[in-house]
Design a protein around this nucleic acid. Structure first.
Lengths: 330, 330
DNA sequence: TAACAAAATGAATACGTAACCATTTTTGGT
DNA sequence: ACCAAAAATGGTTACGTATTCATTTTGTTA
């Protein structure tokens, strides 16, 4: 591999000068710069980022621990995160974490000595959190958060759940189901409690007979759906804990020969990009702001990295209903 | 930052021994291992991957230059690539490349001294190709390929285009449009020529009045669609150059109050995961094999990296029709 | 032209690890 | 108990860069 020493020799200067040409050319005479640049071209020299990291203790690398892309929420956030980070000169190490081997994912992130970590997949009570804090690397969570989280970006999950239920109630639904993910995740937890609040507000007229907390895999959701539609008192509307779940439910509904929303209304939360597609037109609750949650988070993370200010970043975006075609008056 | 030297001092051994405990523990006595491990725990030591890279000239990092995730094809491939690479102990540096700043993307990949590069975004005539070869880093393309490509994984694009047109012809369509991406990309190029072949085979009875090669952005596709439906002789079926384009076209069709497939048939190519969703059920052409194209490519790339065998990898997967709900008899 | 400041360059070093070679300790066979 | 071989450990170096400090060259002023 051709190194800066090789370039130096070839150009008849010191390695120091080569380094200067690349980093502080204003300290180098023009003819010297030319000589060195010529040598760089001729030898096809490319500086080694690892060696630089070693001496500068700065890697220009960020670890992203994302949920899987079959969840469209993570499609949107991953895009926003990677693109913004790249535009700021950072490389992004991506891992798609299933909650099983989270620890492993962290390990590889730590070895890289990344400048920062951005993650979604953390549980309210996750023991990994303390390890993260010990690392003394800036990190931020988006979407989900830990109970002790100091840096996070989320939507107002409680309000989202509340608005979701209220939307169906106001459309006249009186038997509403909840299908959400594990309550160990802050998102589903808060959304569910928001949902409950709305139901309770209308307790005289509305009931939620079916509350299902399921795993987020397609199969588990299908199982939940089957349970729902074969129940004696089939709900007329389902509040899904996320758009991803809502899409799964729509899939199940259609394959069960139920029309959405004619036979059953479905509402999601997150307002993922794909929910707007004409073939889907999912009614959902999402951030008022157009800024993607991932963008907000990576933005703040890079600020933390570069300013080293220990300021707390706690962002909770307001939400609103995006009323589309998967819910209807009853 | 705590280094192996710190651990060594704390454990009363040499740095060499610490290194051995982590890499070749079979060469170290049990009690010594225990001492060292204890020190590692106590100091919360994590080895520095960059330093290791420097001395071993091996980074366990792969650069992935993918197309954007709003194209569902890249959702599927990115998932497959990242997950497989991680399972093999490789980190993946992801970049979502728009064709403008491709060069920049390569630059950062090169600086990382990655072990290998996996990329989709390359043009048939791309000048970057020679730089890539010069780098002497194993690389492989998936989906698209360069005219001189030695390592690639693709589907049989010509056949795919052919089957796509043939499908509509056999359904009785006689006025069929083509909406594809730039012919500078091997995919669209071959698919288009396959399409043409089918049209020509039935020349007496079928015509393709509208051939549109567009950019792949939503807006450009919409423009193409508008042109099509406002034409004097509106086609009854559209062969889209990819599922991504097909989905855009479906979106446009529905918003233009045209039913798919009642008013217009649309067929894609790629058989992306989302095309199976009950709300979409896109008829498409895709690989017969269940193995994702990205998986095949990363698999081969890691083989190339680890065996250093210079064998050519040229994989062209056979394709078939996946007949769903967006095309109909006429 | 001398004197001195400023600009330009170079030599040596550190970063954290693995690898190589040298040395010490242990083991096993007589 | 002794010796050779094997096992275990340590000292030193290299990887490729940026940085610090020292030295040389250039430019400016009296």
């Amino acid at each position: 591999m051709v190194s800066s020493k090789d370039v130096a020799k070839h150009a008849g200067v010191s390695q120091t000068t080569v380094s200067r040409v690349l980093n502080t050319p204003e300290l180098v005479k023009k003819p010297t710069i030319d000589k060195v640049m010529k040598a760089i071209q001729e030898l096809n020299y490319i500086p080694n980022a690892h060696a630089r990291s070693l001496v500068q203790n700065k890697t220009y690398t960020i670890a992203l621990l994302s949920g899987p892309l079959h969840n469209p929420f993570f499609v949107d956030t991953t895009t926003a995160i990677v693109n913004y980070a790249n535009s700021k000169g950072y490389r992004v190490n991506v891992q798609f974490v299933n909650d099983k081997k989270l620890t492993e994912a962290y390990a590889t992130a730590f070895e890289q000595k990344v400048d920062g970590i951005i993650l979604s997949c953390i549980l309210i009570d996750d023991p990994i959190f303390e390890k993260l804090e010990k690392m003394d690397i800036p990190f931020i969570t988006y979407n989900r958060k830990h109970k002790n989280n100091r840096q996070f970006v989320e939507i107002d999950n409680f309000e989202a759940g509340y608005l979701s239920a209220k939307h169906l109630i106001e459309l006249g639904h009186t038997n509403i189901a909840w299908v959400g993910g594990p309550l160990t995740m802050s998102t589903f937890n808060n959304r569910y409690h928001g949902f409950l609040k709305a139901i309770k507000e209308y307790q005289h007229s509305v009931s939620a007979e079916y509350i299902i907390h399921t795993d987020t895999s397609k199969m588990d959701v299908s199982r939940a759906f089957q349970k729902l539609i074969h129940s004696k008192n089939r709900p007329t509307g389902i509040c899904a804990g996320s758009d991803s779940l809502a899409l799964y439910l729509m899939d199940d509904a259609i394959y069960a020969n139920l029309s959405v929303p004619e036979d059953i209304s479905i509402i999601g939360i997150d307002n993922v990009d794909i929910s707007q597609h004409a073939s889907i037109q999912l009614t959902t609750v999402g951030s008022i702001s157009k800024e993607n949650l991932g963008f907000l988070a990576i933005n703040k993370l890079i600020e933390l990295i570069e300013n080293k200010k220990n300021s707390c970043v706690k962002i909770t975006e307001s939400v609103r209903i995006y009323s589309r075609k998967t819910t209807r008056k009853i």
